[in-house]
Design a protein around this nucleic acid. Structure first.
Length: 424
RNA sequence: GGAGGCGUCGCCUAGUCCGGUCUAUGGCGCCCGCCUGCUAAGCGGGUUGAGGGUUCAUCCCCUCUCGCGGGUUCAAAUCCCGCCGCCUCCGCCA
């Protein structure tokens, strides 16, 4: 959630952010009104409570008529205290419900607009010229079938559409990618983590996934647990309700977990192969840091993503995502789009968001700074989303015979092999 | 899933039966000071945490805080209900 102080002191900044996101501005006025009635109720409650407490002491010492008179007054007070307490809770509930609903304040410099208004910041590598090489590239599904690495038919038979099996070399490829990603993350100072993939509502709410993204989340109604769409959720909630040692920041975690996404509202989009699926595994970077360092840390996460994609020898671009496409919790987001030869365009392969203090406030994660106890900043970034990465590797490194060259960096994790080879 | 036990201010712990004197006891640890060739020991003092108000800052003030949430009561660590977590045992299970 955004800072209630900012809301009070500079409501226009919140209005501007809402405008950039394409969200309602009037919610700001509703919030200010709710805040005012909440404060009024608190004032009344505190005054009554103080009197009640003072009288309570006298009651325990008083005798006879005096005691009876005091008891009559304290009874009256108790009644009023209950009423003001209820009023206070009601106003607070309205306030926090509204506050939880509004998106993070958009960082300065973010391009304004919707999904297509991103700005391309960088382009790395050069897409192969398959025409010059004299063959037409196969798409990842065809390659996956030739290599006996991807089985979507049986995935559909067992689990439905948008499910798949990674088989043989495909399964090996996932394990190799995970190993490479975790090895690089550890070298960069991350603590590797294998977090739970089912979480309580607070974790989901705290990370901002029950807002506009709620329709994309799997919920187990019998147990009131959610299947996470990213390790970001359990990693963020790891330190919930904790006060961290500021000297220990930044805390960097690399979580390997399955990611479950309902993909509601994307019917008919990217239906071929494993580009958009209901489940995939992912290695995710997550950082808790001093809010003053968040911008710099965000750039570092981006650099580590670029390092990983570069190691896999995939041509890619870095995008500065536009304000309307940030999601609830991000103040700024950079995406890396890898080259997809058969679509003749770049497609999303990683994403990194600076959530500033937005998630930390919701999850109650603070640190003791010199200036006092304050929320930390949280940042997340994909290191390796397995299915997308496999797609990019297969398509970009394919050979005319359907085999696939394994990028140098990955070979140590595949027993030194140089190629994935067609099955018989 | 069943039975029992437990959850108190960093750690350990008293208090809960029988509500008010709990503004929560004591020890350890930690901080400050004294003493002291140094260190240790000793002596004296301080030390729950969070939120808010005030202030340049300190001081100070208020509220909340005995696993969490309700309830009873003028008043709850203490009584009642629900929940959560941990431990032991049983059942089931990879």
């Amino acid at each position: 959630m955004i800072d209630a102080k900012v809301l009070r002191q500079d409501p226009n900044r919140v209005r501007a952010s809402q405008r950039a996101r394409g969200e309602s501005e009037s919610v700001v006025d509703d919030l200010l009104a709710a805040e005012e009635s909440r404060r009024a109720a608190i004032g009344q409650y505190e005054a009554l409570r103080a009197e009640q407490k003072a009288l309570g002491k006298q009651v325990s010492r008083a005798q006879g008529d005096q005691r009876a008179a005091l008891l009559a007054r304290t009874k009256e007070l108790a009644d009023q205290v209950k009423k003001t307490e209820a009023a206070q809770n009601e106003a607070a509930a309205i306030f926090s419900k509204l506050l939880l609903g509004i998106g993070n304040l958009v960082e300065d410099g973010v391009p304004v607009g919707g999904e297509d208004d991103f700005q391309v910041l960088e382009t790395h590598g050069t897409p192969r010229d398959f025409a010059a090489e004299g063959f037409t590239p196969r798409d990842h599904l065809e390659l996956g079938q030739i290599l006996a690495a991807i089985d979507t038919e049986r995935g559909a038979k067992v689990s439905g559409s948008r499910f798949y099996y990674l088989t043989g070399q495909g399964a090996e490829l996932e394990l190799a990618l995970v190993n490479l990603a975790v090895t690089m993350a550890v070298r960069n100072g991350f603590v590797p983590m294998i977090p739970p993939a089912l979480v309580k509502p607070q974790a989901m709410e705290g990370t901002g996934f029950l807002g506009q993204a709620a329709q994309d989340v799997y919920h187990l109604a019998d147990d009131d647990l959610y299947l996470v769409g990213t390790a970001e959720v359990p990693l963020a909630a790891y330190h919930s309700d904790e006060i961290l040692d500021a000297a220990a920041l930044p805390l960097r975690y690399a979580g390997y977990s399955p990611s479950f996404r309902r993909e509601a509202g994307s019917h008919g989009k990217d239906t071929r192969g494993i580009f958009r699926v209901h489940w995939f595994d992912k290695v995710e970077m997550f950082v808790f840091c001093d809010p003053a360092d968040a911008g710099a840390e965000h750039r570092r996460l981006l650099e580590w993503q670029k390092e990983f994609i570069t190691a896999l020898e995939i041509p890619f671009q870095v995008l500065d995502v536009a304000s309307g496409d940030l999601g609830l919790s991000a103040a700024r987001k950079f995406d890396c789009y890898g080259w997809l030869p058969t679509q003749n365009r770049y497609r999303e392969i990683t994403s990194t968001s600076n959530c500033a203090e937005f998630q930390a406030r919701r999850l109650n994660i603070r640190a003791r700074f010199d200036t006092g106890t304050a929320p930390v900043a949280t940042l997340n970034g994909t290191l390796c989303a397995i299915t997308r990465t496999i797609i990019m590797i297969l398509e970009n490194h394919q050979q005319p015979d359907g085999s696939v060259r394994i990028p140098q960096a990955l070979r140590p994790f595949l027993g030194g092999r140089e190629r994935l080879v067609p099955a018989r």
